[in-house]
Design a protein around this nucleic acid. Structure first.
Lengths: 201, 201
DNA sequence: TTGAAAAAAGCACGACCGTTCGTATTATTG
DNA sequence: CAATAATACGAACGGTCGTGCTTTTTTCAA
């Protein structure tokens, strides 16, 4: 890895840490330069513009999520255990991924949900990819006989995703120590409602 | 209403419109001055600081939510119908409240979930008030015999809130036309799981 | 070791930020 | 109408923003 490439990685790591704290709109050239010890112009030279930096940062966040949550989950046994692995990995994945604060992708999804542009487009793309991976895991759980064949996969994904969002809200803004417990109960109810009776212990 | 009070209301209306679009961190003195036709200094004089303006705006948002969603819902028949009224009123309440875009309170809850200060404190307070109103409505539904007496009220509130968050995500970022349908299905499943059999048609 | 290429720094720019101050305009009251 | 208070304005302040340019330093290969 050349020096420039290494520096770029360092910058993106700092950008992820900051986005985890305060979102992507807080990613300014000046603050990032200070964080990394670079000069403004030196840092700026690695990206054509601030927007390019933000885009690179959100791509890095999506990659980190995939590596931290999805990849390990697909190593779990197929079916419902894998869905649980995904869910558990999802809750508080930022800690495991080395980010001290919130989920930067979630922050971005609120910041850009009404602001057309490359950031929004990228974000939607990453979510669609996540959706597909989730769909796949659910389909496998159906094929494995764990979940009912008449399950509406999109509805299941909606419900599961909603629980994670509820967890973020409760755990972070409301400082609810029982957020994880609540989220697991909700996901358990979701699975129970669509489980094939007797298929799992 | 004196002139100053009227102007202050106009400013806060503009602030809410802007926060609905781009969050509370986008509330700058300059942009708001342009939006209202006031000068920067003229606008600034109505609030001691930008932070005070933001706080006043989020209080106004909470008030608008209460007037638009909670108050009408408490006019609905007690029990599950009232819970449905709350839920329906909640989805897309910003339109009914005169805000063209997203829920400003939701935007704020992501912007300030990791930033201590008066904004976060106020936000948490408003959510606690909402939580209490919701708890009350659920308790009434239990007393009315619509929902099971062993229902965990906090868990119910978590689940219901999560569904709304899932709706926001699907409807706004993902432009999912079926978001409302999905949310209603999820809430219907929540109610069905805790309904007293035969208590409702 | 030297020389080309890459990387980082230095500096300057116009724009906008929140805020302050003094002044002018407008409302309200006696 | 006059006096006074409320309201709004214009200009300016020190800072930070993103972004160009030029120069210096570092890296890496011949």
């Amino acid at each position: 890895m050349g020096k420039g490439e290494h520096t770029r990685t360092v910058i993106l790591e700092a950008a992820l840490a900051q986005a985890s704290e305060s979102g992507f709109e807080s990613l300014t050239i000046g603050s990032l330069a200070e964080r990394t010890g670079l000069s403004k112009s030196g840092l700026f030279a690695h990206f054509g513009s601030r927007e390019d930096l933000q885009c690179a940062a959100i791509d890095a966040a999506a990659q980190l999520f995939a590596d931290t949550v999805m990849k390990p989950a697909f190593a779990a046994p197929r079916g419902v255990p894998r869905l649980w692995a995904m869910f558990e990995g999802w809750l508080g994945w930022t800690q495991r991924g080395g980010l001290a604060h919130g989920c930067p992708i979630h922050a971005a999804s609120v910041e850009y949900d009404d602001r057309p542009g490359p950031m929004r487009d990228r974000l939607v793309g990453h979510y669609r990819a996540l959706q597909q991976a989730l769909d796949k895991a659910v389909r496998i759980a159906i094929d494995a006989g764990h979940l009912r064949a008449d399950l509406d996969i999109e509805q299941f994904a909606f419900d599961m995703f909603a629980i994670v969002l509820g967890y973020y809200h409760a755990a972070r803004l409301m400082d609810d120590a029982r957020a994880g417990e609540r989220a697991r109960a909700a996901f358990g109810r979701l699975l129970a409602d669509f489980a094939v009776p007797g298929a799992l212990p």
